[in-house]
């Protein structure tokens, strides 16, 4: 019962304290607001960069040209063999007639060329998509040596460079976000430390009247929690409305129609929840860390 009383009293005192020490609380809240805003924007950018690179990577595929002599049985056997390869996501068969039709529809000059042939000059193909662009090379090499395969192409050098570049961009964005989270934690923790430094006599009095360390820490931890939550409100509101407006203004694309932004619903709320948790956790641990210093005897 006593523990519950201390717990609920700590929550009450934390709220009182935020308002009674208004200027100190405002300094901490503003610091949290500004730094969390930067983290929120970086999360939105990082999320989109990763989504765009994944989108573009998923467009990359291997085209397997089959030998002219391959029979229907050979083709279905080959298809099942390719499907069995680890990392192959989808295998679509395109006969030479289908490809001829597609190309003719794309350009009339192709149609004219094809008319001059009695039989189709094109080969039957498989279009293969893989789950990870970095596997394109190894899967293509595996397919090349199979029976009835004329060649397996995926763009080789240029695609390898693109895949490497995408993987680099992804890593850089993750590192930037992590670094920003650390900077945010450092700045918020230090602002809270300064605010608590100004109230160290309060902690001293609590110690002298016989409050247990837990009873001293709790109100400050709750106060840090409240400051973190209040500090995350503005960034959350700005990113939710800001992202939805930008998404709608740009029609969901950036640069061209094939580069899509992430749909705001869920994504922007997920980022909001991350910011809220980040604010609350940094606030709590920042306070705890600052109070602990004054509890040493």
């Amino acid at each position: 019962m006593k523990a519950f009383r201390i717990f609920f009293r700590s929550i009450r005192d934390a709220f009182k304290s935020v308002f009674r020490n208004f200027s100190l609380s405002m300094a901490s809240i503003l610091c949290a607001t500004i730094t969390l805003m930067v983290v929120a924007i970086s999360l939105l950018i990082a999320g989109n960069v990763n989504s765009i690179t994944k989108d573009l990577e998923s467009e990359l595929s291997i085209v397997v040209y089959l030998e002219e002599s391959a029979k229907e049985d050979d083709i279905s056997f080959l298809e099942s063999k390719i499907k069995a390869i680890k990392g192959v996501e989808e295998v679509i068969y395109k006969s030479n007639e289908e490809r001829e039709l597609e190309m003719s529809e794309y350009s009339s000059s192709y149609a004219t060329i094809f008319e001059s042939y009695e039989d189709s000059p094109l080969l039957n193909t498989f279009i293969i998509t893989v789950d990870d662009a970095e596997k394109l090379n190894s899967i293509a090499e595996e397919i090349k040596v199979m029976d009835n395969v004329e060649s397996a192409l995926y763009g080789e050098n240029s695609v390898d460079t693109i895949v490497e570049a995408f993987s680099f961009i992804e890593k850089v964005t993750i590192i930037v976000v992590i670094a920003l989270v650390f900077v945010t934690a450092f700045l918020i923790t230090n602002t809270i430390k300064l605010a608590i430094y100004a109230r160290r006599s309060e902690i001293e009095i609590m110690r002298l009247v016989g409050a247990s360390n837990m009873a001293i820490k709790l109100p400050f931890v709750f106060e840090g929690f409240i400051i973190g939550i209040l500090g995350s409100f503005i960034p959350i509101i700005i990113i939710i409305y800001g992202y939805i407006i930008i998404y709608e203004k740009m029609g969901g694309h950036i640069i061209s129609n094939i580069v899509n932004l992430i749909n705001p619903y869920n994504f922007v709320f997920d980022v909001g929840i991350i910011i809220l948790l980040l604010g609350a956790i940094i606030g709590m641990f920042g306070s705890l860390n600052a109070v602990r210093k004054y509890l040493k005897i």
Binding site: R9, I205, L208, V209
Partner: peptide
């Protein structure tokens, strides 16, 4: 079990007389 009185009083400036005194007991739950 010990009460301490200081030269510089060490009162909490934002609490009333009642609250300052009650604070000692509230801390004990």
């Amino acid at each position: 079990k010990i009460g301490v009185v200081f030269q510089d009083f060490k009162l909490l400036p934002k609490l009333t007389v009642y609250e300052n005194v009650a604070f000692a007991l509230e801390c004990l739950g």
